[in-house]
Amino acid sequence: MLVAGVDVGSTQTKAVIITGEHEILGRGLCSTGAKLADAGETAFNLALEQTEFAEPDVAFVVGTGYGRFNIDFGDAQVTEISCHARGAVHLFPGTRSVLDIGGQDTKAIKVTADGQVVDFNMNDKCAAGTGRFLGAASDALEIPLGELGPLALAAKNPVKMTTTCTVFAESEILGWMAKGRRIEDVVMGVHNSIASRSVSLLRRVGIEPEITFTGGVTRNTAMVELISELVGSRVNTNEESHYCGAIGAALYALDQVLTGAGTERGLPT
């Protein structure tokens, strides 16, 4: 028996197919773009292609992320806050605090041992301190996102970014470059800005170890280092962290199939 979780985020869409024994059989990843339903379907199909199964074999699909209501093949919806919490505890059972840096928002979540949300805090409506801030740096400096982390780790004297506005960040980055600052110092300044705002959110819900870092920004090595440094302990991440929301959604899907739990709205019960 298979279930799926599809996380339609503001920047990327992720999907996983898992078995009743929690084994991940397939993963799908694509850019979200403007057509949310298409992105969900594409990621789902990509995940399915990695398995030996077909769509009818997937018993239940839970959608999450901002585009969760656009997944027309989904059976229920759960917010990404609940899904990241559930996914993080599944990946790292000792998790009590979760930090998810997404494309447009950052979530700090306090969780129970079984992955239920005790409390959460999110960034304000603007994208300061989110993955989009890195996107702005990538655009302004014309450096691929994936290269920002390693570049930042080479910094010797990071600049101090003063703006919290993602839009204005581009002009500040160019301003630092115009002053002759080294590119790695500017990039590290951007990382510091995001990390400090994210950890501040985490402090508001109360940092309790273990801390698990989730979302696409976990692939950024500099950010993992910085967050670990700021919270005072090594944060949990692994290769599945990027898919954490989708994994959590799939686990809720599994609950539905195994126990019939939840309601018509896909509540995480």
Binding site: Q116, V118, F120, M122
Partner: peptide, 11 residues
């Protein structure tokens, strides 16, 4: 945010 809050209340 509201949906997530209710999900946590449900939990």
């Amino acid at each position: 945010r509201i949906d997530a809050f209710f999900e946590s209340l449900q939990s």
